[in-house]
C-alpha cells in the first residue's frame, strides 16, 4: 500500500524519519497524558503537546520530504500548522470557560470564584430595576 515514489538522499530520509517519529511520539504522549491526568483542568494541558510540536514535527517532515523529492520548495504544510496553532487556543479557551461556568454553577471542585464586583454589579442592576 505504501510506496515512497522517489528515492531520497540518505540525509533527507533521516531528517524526515526523525521529524515523523518526534511528532507522532509527542502526539501519543499527549494522548496518554490526556487519559491519565486526574482532573479536567490538568487534562486540558496534555493535548496541546499534539497540537504544538506534534503537528509541527509532522508538518516539517512533510515539507522536507516534498521539497526534496520534487526539488522545489513546498511550503503549503505551513498553512495547516498556522491554522492549528491559531484555532486550538480558541477551542480550549471556550471549553475551559464552559467548564469553569459549569463547575461554578454546580460548585464542585476547587474552582476559583468569579470576582466579587460581578456580583455587586448584578445587585446594582437589580436594585436599579426595582427603583424604576
Amino acid at each position: 500500500m505504501i510506496q515512497p515514489v522517489s528515492d531520497l538522499p540518505l540525509w533527507a530520509a533521516m531528517v524526515v524519519a526523525a521529524f515523523l517519529i518526534f511528532g507522532s511520539a509527542l502526539a501519543l504522549i499527549g494522548a496518554i497524558g490526556f487519559l491519565r491526568l486526574p482532573t479536567f483542568y490538568e487534562r486540558l494541558h496534555a493535548p496541546t503537546l499534539g497540537t504544538s510540536w506534534g503537528v509541527g514535527g509532522i508538518m516539517l517532515a512533510s515539507m522536507v520530504y516534498f521539497s526534496v523529492s520534487s526539488s522545489r520548495p513546498v511550503l503549503h504544510e505551513i498553512l495547516i500548522g498556522l491554522f492549528v496553532t491559531v484555532t486550538t487556543p480558541i477551542t480550549f479557551m471556550l471549553l475551559a470557560r464552559a467548564a469553569l461556568h459549569r463547575d461554578r454553577a454546580e460548585s464542585n471542585g476547587n474552582v476559583p470564584e468569579k470576582h466579587q464586583h460581578d456580583l455587586e454589579d448584578v445587585e446594582a442592576i437589580q436594585g436599579n430595576a426595582e427603583e424604576n
Binding site: 505504501i2 515512497p4 528515492d7 531520497l8 538522499p9 540518505l10 533527507a12 530520509a13 533521516m14 524526515v16 524519519a17 526523525a18 515523523l20 517519529i21 511528532g23 507522532s24 511520539a25 502526539a27 501519543l28 499527549g30 494522548a31 496518554i32 490526556f34 487519559l35 487534562r43 499534539g50 509532522i58 520530504y65
Partner: peptide
C-alpha cells in the same frame, strides 16, 4: 536504503498516531 528508513519511520509514526487516536476515543 533511504526507502527502508522512510518506510519504517512512516509505519512507526502511523502506529503511534493510531494508538493516540484509540486513547483519545477511550477518553
Amino acid at each position: 536504503m533511504s526507502a527502508v528508513i522512510l518506510l519504517t519511520a512512516i509505519s512507526i509514526a502511523q502506529l503511534l498516531i493510531a494508538l493516540a487516536m484509540a486513547i483519545a476515543s477511550v477518553r
